[in-house]
């Protein structure tokens, strides 16, 4: 009886059935349209800008070809930004992965208080980079921070003023960024370790392999997908790094800690070089896509099989 009453209207109102068929697409369409315009349309817009002579405002009347890119790669500030990105991303990725893996392996040894320690390692991920920046900026400040503390404890000659030194300032940003993200990498590895099949480990133990060997030869090689995920996440965070630098040094001393994101911002909105700013944004996007696109392709493709 209930079946009859519910199926009846559908049979009668055939035109409505086509509306029902279209409804899913109608629901999805606004989101997809917004993404098409605000992401892909805007990428094209910025792409055009990078070939234009725009200064303070978008200006599509003068075309300068690749001139903005040529000027970009001849500009000392952009070169500084690329060097900083190289230093920052290599150290950030390597140190985060190392700390993350080590902490995960240690935590995986049936540690008492794991439930207490794990949230402590991870909480920095909940903070804004601006908050992290403020904390580390003052903690590393020679006047009141670490140097001052050590000297007041009687180590008079202790000196740590990296944040004020052009050569070293970028490393203080690495310290703060590692502090923020390494717990997250730990969580990724821990999830990976917990997914390892116990049978394999037991078999190796019966064969007389030491714990060290088991980790080196069996478990860590099994973590390859986690390494890959961590690399992708950290690399794309490194290329985007902006807030932390603004909060800690604002690019200083001088231009010593400029990153590509900072360059884009300063040139577009500070120096009225919109064409060059757009070109720098395009380069940033190409760097990220070079990492992300193959990754997503393999992830999505692998799932279908």
């Amino acid at each position: 009886m209930a079946d009859l009453t519910t199926t009846a209207p559908r049979a009668v109102t055939n035109p409505r059935a086509t509306l029902q068929d279209l409804l899913p697409k109608i629901v999805l369409a606004p989101s997809f349209a917004l993404i098409l315009i605000f992401v892909y349309g805007f990428i094209v817009f910025t792409g055009f800008l990078s070939f234009s002579g725009s200064k303070l405002l978008p200006d599509f009347s003068t075309w300068v070809g690749l001139n903005n890119y040529v000027r970009l790669f001849n500009h000392p500030n952009w070169i500084t930004a690329l060097k900083n990105l190289a230093i920052f991303s290599v150290l950030y990725i390597v140190v985060c992965s190392f700390i993350g893996l080590a902490l995960a392996i240690f935590l995986d040894q049936k540690i008492r208080g794991e439930g207490f320690l794990r949230p402590i390692y991870l909480y920095p991920m909940a903070l804004s980079f601006i908050v992290t920046g403020v904390a580390w900026k003052w903690f590393l400040d020679p006047g009141i921070g670490l140097e001052h503390v050590m000297q007041s404890w009687g180590w008079e000659s202790f000196s740590f003023r990296w944040i004020k030194e052009g050569q070293m300032a970028i490393y203080t940003i690495v310290i703060a960024a590692v502090w923020q993200s390494s717990g997250f990498v730990m969580a990724m590895f821990l999830a990976g370790l917990r997914g390892v099949d116990n049978e394999i480990i037991k078999a190796a133990q019966i064969d007389g392999a030491s714990t060290l060997t088991i980790y080196r030869r069996i478990i860590i090689p099994l973590m390859r997908p986690v390494f890959l995920s961590a690399f992708v996440v950290l690399a794309h965070l490194a290329i985007k790094s902006y807030d932390l630098v603004v909060a800690m040094t604002d690019g200083g001393p001088g231009t010593a800690t400029w990153t590509p994101a900072l360059f884009m911002q300063k040139f577009t909105f500070g120096r009225n070089e919109m064409g060059m700013g757009a070109a720098s944004a395009i380069i940033m996007m190409m760097m990220i896509f070079a990492i992300i696109v193959p990754y997503l392709y393999s992830e999505l493709g692998g799932k279908k099989k």
């Binding site: 999805l28 993404i35 892909y40 910025t46 911002q265 944004a281 940033m284 990220i288 999505l300």
Partner: peptide
């Protein structure tokens, strides 16, 4: 529907763009 994977792929890729690339047109 046909092409849903492409739609999803494009939305997914949008997660990772550096926002610098959309700043100027967004402001506009």
């Amino acid at each position: 529907f046909k092409g849903d994977n492409i739609v999803f792929g494009l939305m997914l890729l949008a997660c990772f763009i550096p926002f610098q690339i959309v700043l100027i047109p967004s402001a506009r």
